[in-house]
Write a protein that binds this DNA or RNA. Structure first.
Lengths: 233, 233
DNA sequence: CGGCATCCGGGAAGATACTG
DNA sequence: CAGTATCTTCCCGGATGCCG
């Protein structure tokens, strides 16, 4: 057993994952060399609102397998888009976080999302992570629908809280306490998406116990109308 | 041999390409379901300046194999991002072209390119297609370097010609005749990239016969300075 | 328990040869 | 020229197990 293991290690290449490349000077091609593998961009999406642990990533990316997640994180670290950080004691664990450059992939996620939302094949009723929902708010926000409007809208999505800040025709979202929010949505990300993008009335969702609104209900109603989907092709 | 083959075919599903999906309502995830497979985005890149034939695509995407190109074109057609068009007689051939929606992927190529150009791993001396070069001009153009400047710059790259139009702080590129251009660069795309992005003097490239400048030489020199690369991380 | 390494089956990608 | 057919290689995904 031990012998066989050593033999295989010695026979194997020292550390050559080969890494199929497009061998193309085009920047977009290089981007695909860096983050074009399956799951890579979605891992970055999940890290877009701050550090996460390995298991958080697994939970938020249903379908990814542990070994693939390991490979993607190693690759993101290798190219300088993410780093692994050791948490201070007593939390004997690490988190993964994007680098400054890694965070700059966000506009790509927005553009891709807006483009694909026009596809007839897009199914908005599929599962959705909290990070995806928050990103969609930043992406789909229609400034034309709110003139000089300010609001702090909180979200409580399974242990995590986010704060969406609408002011000056901008819509920003971040992890954060919801204590001083004007209104708080509590429920699954998919449920909140059903209200905002699926047009499902808040009352219906509340009635079935899937959603809870705390605070300014009228503001909640108004909020759901600020994110129009682009027209289908 | 024959028996085994028939058995396998009979056992196989009738016609289910399965199509691995992320099963995620997030728009970016759906985009990856649509065009996230290897080569798909680069095929779109090559079609960004107009229709091309199958063999043109193969030639401009060194490394892609015929069967993969077939699959990608079929998929792009299936999702509504491209279509196959029969050329009028006597040209008994077809071309592939993007749909309106397909063309709208262009900003994604630009953002990805700008992002990846900051990677230390990016090697600008690799081969480059004509379409990539033209896209890079639209992407990397720095309006701040030209105030009220107008120019028509032509490119002759192995049988194909492009016209880059600089006016009103904008830089546009398209396929087109170079007859009324102020200056024309004739050479390989990689050579022209060496001049614009690699800082190689035009004279050096001309001396070794890799490049030919026709028309306003001073304008050619100025043109090469309009496309600064973003800072490395 | 979290973070991997390992083995395996299936399927996509790559290379080559062949055909209408 | 425009693909198809076939074979090989490698990646992805799932299961298991090691180890701190």
């Amino acid at each position: 057993m031990k012998l066989e293991k050593i033999t295989k290690e010695m026979r194997a290449a020292p550390k050559a994952p080969v890494l199929r490349s497009y061998d193309d000077a085009c920047g977009a091609a290089h981007a695909l060399d860096l983050i074009g593998e399956r799951w890579a961009l979605l891992v970055m999406r999940e890290l877009m609102f701050g550090p996460k642990r390995f298991s958080d990533l697994r939970a938020d990316l249903p379908g990814i397998s542990a070994n693939v997640l390991t490979q993607r994180l190693e690759r993101l670290e290798e190219i300088g888009a993410a780093r692994k950080r050791k948490l201070p004691p007593p939390a004997a664990s690490h988190v993964y976080e994007l680098t400054q450059w890694g965070y700059e992939i966000e506009p790509v996620l927005g553009l891709l999302g807006r483009w694909a939302a026009r596809s007839p094949l897009h199914d908005p009723t599929l599962p959705l992570s909290a990070a995806s929902l928050m990103l969609s708010f930043k992406t789909m926000f229609d400034a034309g629908r709110v003139k000089g409007f300010k609001a702090r809208v909180g979200f409580r999505i399974s242990e995590e809280t986010f704060l969406v800040h609408i002011a000056g025709g901008k819509c920003d979202a971040a992890r954060g306490a919801v204590d001083d929010a004007d209104v708080v949505f509590a429920g699954a990300a998919t449920t909140i998406a059903a209200a905002v993008y699926g047009g499902v009335p808040l009352k219906a969702l509340e009635a079935q116990g899937a959603l809870k609104i705390e605070g300014d209900r009228a503001l909640a109603e108004r909020f759901t109308g600020l994110f129009p989907l682009p027209p289908k092709i």
